[in-house]
Computed example of a mutant assay.
Amino acid sequence: MDLFKLFACLGAAPALGVFATQAVSFVPPASSPLSTSANYVGINNGSLPIEQIVPGRVFDRFIQIWLENTDFSVANSTAEFRSLAERGILLSQYFALTHPSQPNYAATIAGSFFGIADDSVHDIPSNVSTMVDVLEHGGISWAAYMENLPADGFNGASFSSVNYVTPGAADYPFYMRKHNPPILFDSVLKNPSRLARVRNFNDFAVDATAGALPQWLFVTPNMVNDAHDTTIDFAANWLQFWLEPLLEDERFNNERTLILLTFDENESQNQNNNIFGLLLGGAVPSSMKGTVDTTYYTHYSAMSTVQSNWGLGCLGRGDTDPVMSNVYELVASATGFENNPVSGKKIPLTNASGATPGPLNPSPSLRTPWPAANSSAICAGGGPVIATPL
């Protein structure tokens, strides 16, 4: 299929869980995690450059893998997730920030979701700094890998391609912009060199094979492999296909790699937003595998942990919130960061949608000007507040 025909497939997503109601079986999208595939749609553009490694206190590479819309209890009772938990540190008090999906993705690299309360297309202005600025300021290489992204830096709301799960069915919207954190920000979207780092899984295969994976990765599976349109068992099968072999491959996971496997939000929105979080990888000491960390964490903790590990600056937003930005204890104990002992009724309720004021809140009564960063914030890594994009 040529690229013009592929782009013509762009369209709206079907109802949530459409494949779940059809009880379809998992189909591997490629022959192996490091194989390119027509199912990933976009051709690769050659590997990223192999860049100098900046040593961290606990890890030299941080990989986030996000799945979708699942309660902690559901993931934690699924065989594959229990098996993985025996090889890592279970974060039992890990919480998403809001509902629906998109604001959680935005917040995890911006320290705020700016009042977003929907999955509509938002372009966040170029003067809003993100973790990309924090990473680049510290010389840390980065990339985001989006399964089924049709072209590096593609900015469409969704993209439909050949339905490899159900051959002969209509093209399916496997890719969604709302699950692609960097592309939400004009500081990335309007910067060609940064945009080239928003890549698909064919690029991932080439980068990994070339030894060119960066030090900070955000990985988003497609809409069936992340459990959004399927089930937790479908996502478990994807993890067995994609993640399990890579855990044994030093080009992805070595003794200096920390992997966060988690979910964007829970499914039961009448309950607080507790989600399954798991730390894996060679940076997890053998003595800590199979253990449970009961510290209160949120998606902001992924930011503060990275900042603490590399001695970086911060954004002066949620990544410095005294309640919501605890550093993973594995790292906090090595860097001297003192976590806040939040528990029980002191854990904030983060299961509401649309209740947080911000410039992108759809309610006029809750809409605010774009907030300035807190320039006097204390960064977990001890660096400066990065208030302006580089």
Rank of each mutant, 00 (worst) to 15 (best):
D2A: 05
D2L: 10
L3P: 01
L10H: 11
T21W: 12
A23V: 06
S25C: 08
A30V: 09
S35F: 13
T36C: 12
A38Q: 12
I43S: 13
G46T: 09
I50Q: 12
P55M: 14
P55N: 13
L67F: 14
D71M: 03
V74Q: 07
R82P: 05
I116R: 00
S120P: 02
H122D: 10
D123T: 09
P125W: 13
S129C: 10
D133M: 08
V134W: 03
A143V: 06
A144H: 06
A144Q: 12
A144F: 09
E147F: 04
L149V: 05
A151V: 13
F154V: 04
S161N: 09
T166L: 15
F174H: 03
F174P: 00
I183P: 00
N200V: 08
A208F: 12
L213H: 03
F218P: 00
P221R: 02
H228Q: 03
D229L: 02
D233M: 06
F234C: 02
A235P: 00
L239A: 05
E244P: 00
N253M: 13
E255P: 02
I275V: 15
K289W: 14
V292Y: 05
T295C: 08
Y297V: 01
L312M: 14
E329A: 11
V331E: 02
S333P: 02
E338A: 12
P341G: 08
G354N: 05
T368D: 13
N374C: 08
N374M: 11
S376H: 10
G383N: 09
I386H: 03
P389S: 12
